[in-house]
Design a protein around this nucleic acid. Structure first.
Length: 289
DNA sequence: AAACAGGGCAACCGCCCTAAT
DNA sequence: AATTAGGGCGGTTGCCCTGTT
């Protein structure tokens, strides 16, 4: 009996005499699940799996729906704004992925968790410091996050001059800022190919379930790399993130130019910052590496 | 062209909490 | 109050893809 979860015997008792499928979901299974939920709604996942004719555990169905099949799942690159928000919220809440995901509409906890592990933790590893160490957190707060703010502002300035006509009528999504995030609760608008009327009319809309073509689109560094680029309010945004700049030192403006990440740069080969940056931080905070 | 290595991510595991009985 | 089932959550695994040798 290789399919039975060891640790959840109680809830799996219904599965005792049933041959359950595991591993990647097929298109047929996806369709069954989507069709069933469209008719009957979600919830009661064990019985849902049974009635939908899916030889899967309820948990598996729930996960598939929440992380992949839900119509509002947002796919594609994690944007600069989302990166910034993830860093901020993680510094506040730690590995509370679902809580963090609540503030990134369309992003799943799994996606954010994967982002953190594959991108951020990798950087910590390359810097030979613990991702939970004060050093690393200070590095994020006083170097990476201000630099991200700069990049976002620069991108907004560029996009507003080049795409002003198309953005003014766009349908705004909501990037939900948590309470106390640089002040009162606010929201920021963005446009995506999914929610922008102009994008929707000019591009073939592919079901997010089966489309992975919009992942990891690399473009020259001076262009916007993200197909679902945020149209953040420039003034509101800079105000929101002003607290990331050290009150005594503007870390983002010191001489060495480290590379921000994921903005057209190859994250696999490009560090968040270089040795000079790290030396600079060590001097500022008397790091003991 | 083939083999290998590493990264990214979907899916699973197992623990925990909570509501229902 | 105790038990049970459903579901949420964080951690982990393993497959697939891509880049490198």
């Amino acid at each position: 009996m290789d399919v039975k979860a060891k640790g959840n015997l109680q809830s799996d008792q219904d599965d005792e005499h049933m041959e359950l499928r595991r591993g990647p979901w097929t298109v047929e299974e996806d369709l069954k699940l989507v069709d069933y939920i469209a008719t009957h709604g979600e919830g009661r996942w064990n019985s849902l799996a049974l009635y939908a004719g899916l030889k899967r555990t309820g948990k598996s169905c729930r996960l598939r729906w929440l992380n992949y099949l839900r119509p509002d799942v947002r796919r594609g690159n994690i944007t600069l704004e989302e990166q910034l928000l993830i860093l901020e919220l993680h510094s506040r809440w730690g590995n509370r992925w679902s809580k963090i995901a609540q503030h990134l509409p369309g992003r799943t906890d799994n996606e954010i968790k994967n982002y953190w592990r594959t991108r951020v933790q990798k950087q910590a590893k390359q810097l030979k410091c613990d991702v939970n160490s004060k050093q690393f957190k200070d590095t994020m707060r006083y170097l990476w996050m201000p630099r991200l703010v700069e990049r976002i502002q620069a991108s907004v300035a560029t996009s507003t001059t080049t795409t002003a006509a198309s953005t003014t009528s766009a349908t705004a999504g909501q990037l939900v800022m948590p309470q106390g995030f640089g002040g009162e609760r606010v929201t920021q608008s963005y446009t995506t190919p999914e929610n922008s009327s102009t994008a929707a009319s000019s591009e073939t809309q592919v079901s997010p379930v089966f489309d992975s073509n919009d992942y990891y689109v690399n473009v020259p560094a001076n262009n916007n790399p993200n197909p679902d680029y945020f149209q953040a309010s420039q003034t509101g945004f800079s105000h929101q993130y002003s607290s990331f700049i050290s009150p005594s030192t503007n870390f983002s403006n010191h001489g060495t130019d480290f590379q921000p990440w994921l903005d057209g740069a190859d994250i696999a080969t490009d560090n968040f910052m270089n040795c000079d940056d790290f030396l600079f931080l060590q001097q500022q905070f008397n790091f003991n590496m």
